[in-house]
Design a protein around this nucleic acid. Structure first.
Lengths: 373, 373
DNA sequence: CTCGATTCTGCAAGTTCTTGCTGACTAATG
DNA sequence: CATTAGTCAGCAAGAACTTGCAGAATCGAG
């Protein structure tokens, strides 16, 4: 075939080695060496060829894009719950000094799913992937996908969610302890009928919160299984899910509610107000995450803080270590949550606490209407 | 050189066409056609070759991956301000039905910058890029970078921020009108000494807000230039910036403050409380964005809503049209903001209106503690 | 200033990939 | 059942790319 035919072939009109050689004023051989990143080319010559490449719009092969070789995928489930942008932001900051470039992938309902993003990231030749609350946290999901990744091998790190049999670092907040601490806080304030609202129980963090909640309720409030079942509401994550579940718990006489996310807690507060109740006077609510802005809510939300910064740093360090080949033992690193007491919890009303005596509608204890720090 | 030499060449040991042909039981020619996405190959044969490709771990060239729809870059400046995750989420949702996969790029202080992300996106052969509050909004930045992109040609769409001379669709919220509406709202409540807090004035949206604010203040409150200068505070975006600036405005006797972001508004509220003032009794605060959760703040924030959903849909449609070659005229599409009245604004205190008596320390009027909708 | 060592580039001979053309096969039609 | 039109894989020519080798250029030591 004639050359001009080839040249006019596609709209892309891929430049030939010979064109680049001409542009850079070197031989094809040199261009070829540069393109394949082989030795024996002087730095200036190499740069000249690369420049010519760009001038002619030549698509650099993947191996040459080493400059951006330091890509790291960051897969988060959504952005509605502010804890996820918070994780994303902090992980990206932690990644910056390591020289890796984060590529954030967020799933949307009806949109791109985790596997598709992973495929894209692989295609993009990422050095590793961080999964935040991904399918690894879902006991109903097939975890072979992660074993396949590790077999390539591709370093991966999981945040919040544990799945046995995946030899990778897991970084989690101790959900069990968080639930226990939240219950303990409410018990200390005199609550006994304390409800739990969290998400669908196929998720590991949900299971752990339920387990911690039940243990603490039995130990600290002396509540039996039947009552526990009545006080546990699995719902959808998000404000509306929390609102609906809280409505049911309020009707069953709960005076305190532990929520699986801050958004659910805000929904619970809304449910209480719609029934003419005040928070924290009539109902105490504890959130989970301490996502941004929770100090500014009405009332400021008492919540279990996930040590997001520490977790992000640990995850990034673990990933970079894996990439460099000195991976730490593949266990789960549990981070301790911290109770942040703000204004959505208060001493239980006497008439509702376990000893049912007390007068009816007394003034609430002065709530800790803290100026947000 | 001998074949085995070539084969043992690199660790990657790139599979040859002949290997794939053998694996798929077809000729090299057929493999070549598949790899280059050329016609004349039966679908089953094509699939067989692709499978063989994967079996042998052959890295598919980028053009073949195009099959997996197009990628669209989505560049946002940060995730701390919840309006940005909100934009990202909605744009991703709007993108989903079009078949494009969003790649979210967020900048972080000290981390990856816009140009680096753009380079990576180009490298990844994205079909287009959406910039949210990017450098196009910064009058101090060089806008040639965008003209270069358009010359490739690569479709781009800008959200919030306008730069003349870039022939691309711009989708913005009408900042000028937002500022005017905010001022009008406060004037209607009896305020006259109304301050403005917003970001550094090299940003187009800031300039527009300032311009709208000044126009409205002159027209509605009859304030002269000197007083306006005293009531305008340019600060850093974010809670702390708002807090610092609000402190200065309060000292100068402002009874109402219009903020350039919701975060700044929360900072302003904090500044007021630290001085023993109540919001909205002693100080009315209007935010900007109506980012998520603002209905849950204390007090619920009165704010100017950006029609995020409509803007996202418009931006996505404009981008997809550009990609498909039927671009609309490249003008700026201005979306009208909407005043959302919640609990952070109230009628001006008599002693503080027009007659300047400075912020006293008396008890506030009963607050309109609205239940968030 | 000369010489040798070293680095770098181009030549040319490979190897690999692309593509026009051909013929085999299939399905529809007479 | 024969014919025709269309599709599709393979052949093989040759274009594109790679690489061993040798000569040119550079640099430092003597």
């Amino acid at each position: 075939m004639r050359k001009n035919l080839a040249v006019s072939y596609s709209a892309a009109m891929r430049a030939r080695l010979s064109d680049i050689a001409q542009q850079a004023d070197v031989s094809e051989a040199t261009v070829s060496r540069v393109l394949n990143d082989r030795p024996g080319v002087a730095p200036e010559t190499r740069q000249a060829v690369l420049t010519a490449l760009d001038v002619l719009g030549y698509e650099r092969p993947a191996r040459l894009r080493k400059r951006s070789a330091g890509l790291v995928g960051l897969v988060v489930p959504e952005l509605d719950n502010p804890i996820f942008p918070a994780f994303a932001q902090i992980i990206e900051s932690a990644l910056a000094p390591t020289g890796y470039t984060p590529v954030l992938c967020t799933q949307t309902p009806g949109g791109v799913r985790e596997d598709e993003y992973v495929e894209m990231l692989l295609d993009r030749q990422v050095s590793g992937i961080v999964f935040v609350s991904g399918l690894h946290a879902d006991t109903a999901a097939d975890h072979d996908r992660y074993r396949t990744l590790l077999a390539r091998p591709l370093p991966i790190v999981m945040i919040n969610g544990y799945a046995p049999g995946i030899p990778a670092p897991f970084v989690s907040c101790d959900d069990r302890e968080a639930a226990e601490l939240a219950v303990a806080h409410l018990v200390a304030l005199g609550h006994r009928r304390i409800g739990l609202i969290t998400g669908p129980d196929r998720f590991v963090p949900v299971q752990r919160k339920v387990s911690g909640y039940k243990a603490a309720m039995e130990r600290l409030a002396g509540v039996d299984d039947d009552e526990l079942a009545e006080l546990t509401e699995l719902s959808l994550f998000g404000v509306e899910g929390g609102e609906a579940a809280a409505g049911r718990l309020i009707e069953r006489g709960a005076t305190g509610i532990v929520c699986g996310s801050d958004l659910m807690a805000l929904g619970a507060i809304r449910a209480a107000r719609q029934r003419g109740m005040s928070v924290p006077e009539d109902l105490s609510v504890v959130g989970y995450d301490d996502s941004p802005l929770m100090a500014f809510t009405d009332p400021p939300l008492t919540t279990m803080r996930q040590p997001v910064a520490a977790m992000a740093v640990a995850a990034v360090r673990a990933l970079v270590d894996e990439i460099n080949g000195h991976g730490a033992p593949h266990s789960e690193y549990l981070f301790r949550p911290e109770l942040v007491v703000r204004g959505s919890t208060a001493v239980a009303r006497q008439d509702a606490a376990s000893t049912q005596s007390g007068p009816g509608r007394q003034r609430p204890t002065p709530s800790a209407l803290a100026v947000p720090a």
